[in-house]
Design a protein around this nucleic acid. Structure first.
Lengths: 216, 216
DNA sequence: GCGTCCCTCCGCCGATCGGGGGAGGAGATG
DNA sequence: CATCTCCTCCCCCGATCGGCGGAGGGACGC
């Protein structure tokens, strides 16, 4: 086996000059890394990646003309066989979730030490996934929220029934009469429905319920 | 053929005590009717219907805990082979249309005479359908309106846009601010939307629009 | 028994809604 | 030019809504 088969080809895109230098040094110090190119421009990065077909791409999330996320999306969209590691200034943004959804292999904060970065590259090259701990927290919260909000079998029978009547255009008092319960009770149920659907009022509740298939 | 094969098994649900008595007398006076049970509670009615499998069910439209319409819906949903006759206090409500859509076999006003009720039961047992004349008028109006309304090419761009915002839970004034138009204008548009969709208010408009695929 | 969920009910308040009118201008289409 | 649709705006008014509290009882599982 030639040497090139045991090393990982890496492409780097980073627009902060000083940080770029540091990364170059870090990557250069690793024997298993074969740096095939770098740039500070997003579009150029995407072009080079298509040409050079590196096994691993390290992307700053904020690049001129084309962000790291967009490049990641392009890579996945075109089905390139290529690991992607994202470096982010703030590990807590919405971007984290998007990146993970796009199948990112690594997501590190720029606060990471040189060893953390170097080890992450190795780990990713071996097929692993590396997320900064803060990223993991953000993800955990996201997932928790999604589960809390979306996985709800949601409405109780009564709530469901009242939501139906609301969707039929019935007013609160009218529903109370029809179900032979107090108007206050109807109100309570509707409020609970709003809370469960994460919505502020009737019309939005109907829209959300229909999107979730709770009504028809 | 044994006698039981020539008689119709009937279950009765009615929550007004005096009216219940009258109905029991009426049904008892008919030889072709075999009353298999009765109750004044909606949920109990539905349970008993599932157990006893009567050939005909007579339901007050307003029952505690589960309305006649809901029972009718449940019967149709479960595919029970069972005629349903609804007794309604006011024959002119929205409920009429729902009942007919659910395939009700009879819909009488409580103003009906004992003979009318008894004859209706017989007619339904024979496979016929009996609707109070007032009910027929209501239906005729409904159908006329539906045709007039549904044939419409639907919403103008502005109306569509405002309906979207309504479905997002925005209030009238909020929409006005967002679109930088007068609150009165928003109101006019919403009113036009209601008219075009044949609906009385916001929540119902959203429901109808989603059914028609105007929103998502 | 204790916690949790569901269903029931109450009051207060300001904001919003929907019905009922009417009106004018812009643009297309005949 | 007449007509139509669309968009814009105005009045009044009672009914309803939604947010904010709180409360109690019944059912079910642990």
């Amino acid at each position: 086996m030639p040497v090139s088969d045991t090393r990982t080809t890496v492409y780097l895109a980073e627009d902060h000059p000083l940080y770029l230098e540091s990364l170059l040094r870090i990557l250069g110090s690793r024997e298993e890394v074969e740096l095939v190119g770098w740039t500070s421009d997003g579009i150029r990065a995407w072009q080079q990646i298509q040409e050079l077909r590196p096994q691993l791409v390290v992307l700053d999330i904020q690049l001129p003309r084309m962000t790291g996320l967009e490049i990641l999306k392009a890579i996945r969209h075109d089905g390139l066989d290529c690991k992607v590691m994202i470096l982010s200034g703030d590990a807590a943004g919405d971007q984290v979730f998007d990146a993970v959804r796009l199948g990112v292999n690594g997501y590190l904060s720029k606060d990471a030490t040189r060893d953390e970065i170097a080890d992450a590259v190795s780990e990713i090259a071996r097929g692993g996934t590396v997320l900064a701990s803060l990223v993991q927290q953000v993800l955990a919260n996201e997932v928790r929220d999604r589960v809390a909000v979306e996985a709800r079998p949601s409405l109780s029978p009564r709530e469901h029934q009242i939501l139906r009547l609301i969707a039929d255009g019935k007013s609160g008092p009218a529903i109370a009469r029809e179900l032979q319960i107090g108007a206050a009770t109807v109100k309570t149920h509707t409020q609970n429905v709003y809370a469960k659907l994460g919505v502020p009022e009737r019309a939005a509740a109907v829209a959300e319920a229909m999107r979730r298939g709770l009504l028809d």
